[in-house]
Design a binder for these strands. Structure first.
Length: 880
RNA sequence: GGGCGCUUAGUUCAGAGGGAGAACGCUACCUUGACACGGUAGAGGUCGGAGGUUCAAGUCCUCCAGCGCCCA
């Protein structure tokens, strides 16, 4: 074995091996319990980032864990066509060539998108394999493939037939750059500095009229009213009268509406029903006409007279200038406002009334709420439930049509003769209403999230009643970031309940987002994105995975930390070398039955600690506390198995003589290492497989071995307590050595004065461990009240006095000072303890157990202090 | 405006009522027959601030400040 673990020599080979033996293949298997995760499909727009690495690591951990626990574990891989995002990538490429998608035409353009999809799909697949994902590649899906397209079609037609999908003219968000309508979720709002323009609308008779305040003066060209609050004393007289809309010279009414905020601006609101959702509602309440003044390209329409054809921002400047010229611009204030921007391209969206397809969400939202209220779906961490609920309780209809070319076509045909709509599961050749063949399909495509919403069941074969769907659905858990609760999680739950009749998963584990070292969200545009591939090149996939697991705490964002990578890489190496040590000493192993063998203190102790660790890992994993589970493993492996047990084991391994001890130790080392590897495997699959293959084993792969379980019979409180005393003694001797910088090569003599016979026999039986681990030449034992030897360094702990003989070089004054410092520390603790025990409230109200513990502590402090003072006296008496 | 989260060692983060923890970094000593990606021993926190509850408060409650996010 190499002296250091070299992941690059291992990972590829191991992954190929797994594929060869079908280690990740899952089948419908009634003999086993199913455990299923469907991957949140990465977009084929780009490459995987740290957020994916985190997401996949968690899922792989859960899948591998359950596979080992005996479940039929299926992880379904796949990718998402990511409609608008992918289309934009290709459009950006074309732009560099000086072309638009219209220059190419729809067919050629879509062909080009497929090429981009293929390229990114290859990259993503390679990246996933590097991470070590144990997905069943035979079952990979793509949101635009044939089966999923059928699912989309079925879902659309079903919802249409049920009246839950409808076509209508409604206010939507329009992105002038992408040239498509968007759903509310795809609009991001950001506070930016702007202005509030105060514009006077005079009365027809030349009276002063009213002053309105607006952040978007260009929309005034489409105003059809001014609205005031009915209780507003300032305007009571004006209600029902008219004012002249400047520039357009249109006479518009003043209406009263409760919606108006009297505090904002002048309390008078210009009403533009065609370009503001609130204005639209006011318009509907007062039967106001709606005048479209901004078109889909962001240019002014013919309705705007002299401004027709101008860009909306150019028009804003001209309107302001013209108002100023006419003396109707009263003033301009600085004002922070939040214009909506297209999530994908950043362009300021235009709210406008447009005919689109919508999903009626209210009935579906009820099903979504019921799924959570009934406990069918549980969020982890629990607090996200409220976020989910709040959204569903205030749900708006979902605009699902997109004026794009990349995506699922809308399965609707319009009849050019009778004007009716035909929506069917198979492509129609004639109108379902009049039989005319003069029909044409809707040119639009569906929101990419529509197909995503079906993912957990479409990937399992729905709408076919496949055995997979029957067996694996509902899936076990969904693992994703909290940023797509609305976009994806909620919609999957609703669609699953409604279309399949069952919730798509019983648990949702929501993790945080990955941020850079300064806490900023990682993104390509900011240039702070860390490439997981580079990390894996440098530290190895296992190290990256383990580091990510250590960083995952419930729902909290994860700050990328290279230090963690180093720590995890070192842990890999530690595991590698501990294994190397065990393997080197296993050549002549003849396993013994541990139950019927005489075990040493260290043996009993490590078996107990091992079992305790397994229980803790289990407990933490059950609660999705991955960081705590990882910590439990780390602390045990490094701090107990390596630091203590392996060191003590060397005594038996390297000492000739008692062959039965060697056999026992070999058996324990092998047994525990095997279980350690299996316990860590879901976290660090590659290194554990590599080592496991080099250990005596049966079976093809560690990934299909049973997951270790804690053994109650290995628990040994007595061994743990005794070992603790031994560890204290050794640590104290080491500390005394360090105090005087005695090099490890230099042996020392030690006297341990023990408080009782029990400790005496304990220490006596562990002489070898002490002399070996603390590098002691001669170990003397005495029972209190023996006097410590003169001129010795003294430490006091667990009732023991540990004296390090140093007859020649000891500086007595310095030693007295050192002991006094120790006394000061103890004294502080003693005082606190005394104070507590003098408090009658504490004695009366605290549980007896706590009080007793405090009393014991105080007794120990007193005893230790006494001995330290004795030593000071002793040293003082011989001081020159 | 409403809601959520965070504030603990130089840095990144755990801890959720009974003597402050990890990783990395730092100091000292050490190539000890698994490992210098190592060993041993250390230094380093009035747990954001102010009140309160409690015998006991990083830990529970209230308020405040700062940072971040979501929704309107």
């Amino acid at each position: 074995m190499e002296k250091a673990y070299q992941p690059q020599q291992v990972e590829d080979r191991i992954y190929q091996y797994w594929l060869e033996i079908g280690a990740f293949d899952a089948e419908v298997n009634p003999a086993k319990q199913p455990y299923c995760i469907v991957i949140p499909p990465p977009n084929v727009t780009g490459v995987l980032h740290m957020g994916h690495a985190l997401d996949e690591t968690i899922q792989d951990l859960l899948i591998r864990l359950h596979r080992m626990k005996g479940y039929e574990a299926l992880w379904v891989p796949g990718t998402d066509h990511a409609g608008i995002a992918t289309q934009n990538v290709v459009e950006a490429q074309l732009e560099e060539e000086g072309l638009t998608r219209h220059d190419l035409g729809r067919e050629k353009f879509v062909k080009r998108v497929w090429e981009v999809k293929d390229k990114h799909h290859r990259i993503i697949t390679d990246q996933l394999k590097r991470i070590g994902v144990s997905v069943d590649w035979r079952r990979e899906r793509f949101t635009l493939d044939e089966g999923l397209s059928r699912a989309v079609r079925e879902a659309f037609v079903t919802l249409y037939e049920q009246g839950l999908i409808y076509r209508g003219a409604r206010m939507i968000n329009w992105c002038p750059r992408c040239g498509t309508g968007l759903s509310d979720l795809e609009v991001e709002r950001e506070l930016v500095p702007g202005h509030l323009w105060y514009i006077r609308y005079p009365e027809p008779n030349g009276g002063p009229g009213v002053v309105v305040a607006t952040t978007r003066p260009e929309t005034m060209l489409g105003d059809t009213a001014v609205a005031v609050h009915p209780q507003d004393e300032r305007y009571k007289e004006m209600i029902g009268r008219t004012v002249i809309l400047p520039l357009m010279n249109r006479e518009i009414p003043i209406v009263a509406d409760d919606y108006i905020d009297m505090e904002f601006g002048t309390g008078a609101l210009k009403v533009t029903p065609a370009h503001d959702p609130n204005d639209l509602e006011i318009g509907q309440r007062h039967n106001l006409p709606s005048i479209l003044v901004i078109d889909r390209a962001g240019k002014m329409t013919d309705e705007t007279g002299p401004y027709a054809g101008l860009d909306r921002y150019e028009c804003r400047k001209r309107v302001v200038a013209d108002l100023q010229k006419q003396g109707l611009l009263e003033r301009i204030e600085d004002y922070q406002h939040t214009p909506g921007r297209c999530q994908r391209c950043g362009t300021v969206v235009e709210p406008l009334v447009s005919t689109q397809w919508f999903v009626r969400m209210e009935p579906l939202a009820k099903e979504g709420l019921a799924a959570v209220d009934s406990g069918q779906v549980r969020f982890i961490p629990e607090r996200w439930t409220k976020v989910y609920r709040d959204w569903l309780e205030n749900i708006q209809d979902w605009c699902i049509s997109r004026q794009l070319w990349w995506g699922h076509p809308i399965p609707v045909w319009y009849c050019n003769d009778c004007g009716e709509v035909t929506c069917t599961r198979e492509d129609p050749t004639r109108c379902a209403h009049c039989g005319s063949e003069n029909i044409q399909q809707d040119p639009d495509v569906l929101d990419t999230w529509f197909s995503s919403a079906l993912w957990p069941f479409s990937t399992l074969g729905w709408p076919e009643e496949t055995p997979e769907l029957d067996y694996f659905y509902p899936t076990s858990v969904l693992v994703t970031g909290y940023d797509i609760i609305y976009f994806w999680v909620a919609r999957m739950i609703m669609m699953g309940k409604h279309l399949v009749g069952k919730e798509p998963f019983s648990e949702v584990f929501l993790h945080g987002l990955v941020r850079d070292e300064r806490g900023q969200k990682m993104s390509k545009s900011l240039g702070n994105a860390v490439d997981p591939i580079e990390l894996m090149d440098e530290y190895g996939a296992d190290a990256m995975r383990f580091a990510l697991c250590q960083l995952i705490t419930h729902g909290q964002d994860v700050t990328y930390s290279p230090d963690r990578m180093v720590g995890a890489r070192n842990f890999c190496n530690k595991l590698w070398n501990a294994s190397r040590f065990v393997i080197m000493n296993l050549a002549d192993m003849q396993p013994v039955a541990l139950e019927s063998t005489q075990l040493s203190l260290a043996d009993r102790w490590i078996l107990s600690r091992h079992s305790r660790m397994l229980a803790e890992v289990q407990r933490q994993l059950d609660g999705y506390n991955l960081a705590q589970a990882a910590e439990a493993i780390y602390d045990y492996v490094w701090g107990e198995f390596c630091d203590w047990y392996a060191e003590i084991a060397k005594i038996d391994l390297y000492t000739d003589g008692d062959n039965s001890r060697r056999k026992t130790v070999q058996t324990i080392l092998h047994t525990l290492l095997d279980e350690i590897l299996r316990t860590i495997h879901p976290f660090m699959p590659f290194i554990t497989e590599e080592i496991w293959q080099r250990l005596p084993h049966s079976g093809e792969t560690i990934s299909r071995q049973p997951y270790p379980q804690a053994r109650e019979r290995w628990r040994d409180e007595e061994a743990e307590a005794q070992m603790s005393v031994l560890q204290t003694a050794i640590t104290q001797i080491r500390a005394l050595r360090a105090e005087l910088s005695i090099s490890p090569g230099q042996p020392v003599n030690v006297t341990v004065i023990v408080p009782d016979e029990e400790t005496m026999s304990l220490i006596a039986s562990q002489q070898q461990a002490i002399t070996s681990l603390a590098r002691v030449e001669e170990l003397n034992l005495a029972t209190a009240p023996a006097k410590p030897p003169q001129a010795a360094l003294l430490a006091v702990s667990e009732g023991m006095q540990i004296c390090l003989h140093l007859p020649e070089r000891l500086d007595i004054e310095e030693e007295i000072q050192r002991i006094r410092r120790e006394i000061d520390e103890l004294e502080k603790l003693r005082k606190r303890s005394v104070k507590k025990l003098q408090n009658s409230d504490f004695l009366n109200k605290a549980p007896a157990q706590v009080v007793n513990k405090e009393k014991e502590k105080l007794a120990e402090f007193d005893r230790d202090l006494q001995r330290l003072w004795d030593q000071v006296k002793l040293l003082s008496s011989i001081s020159p």
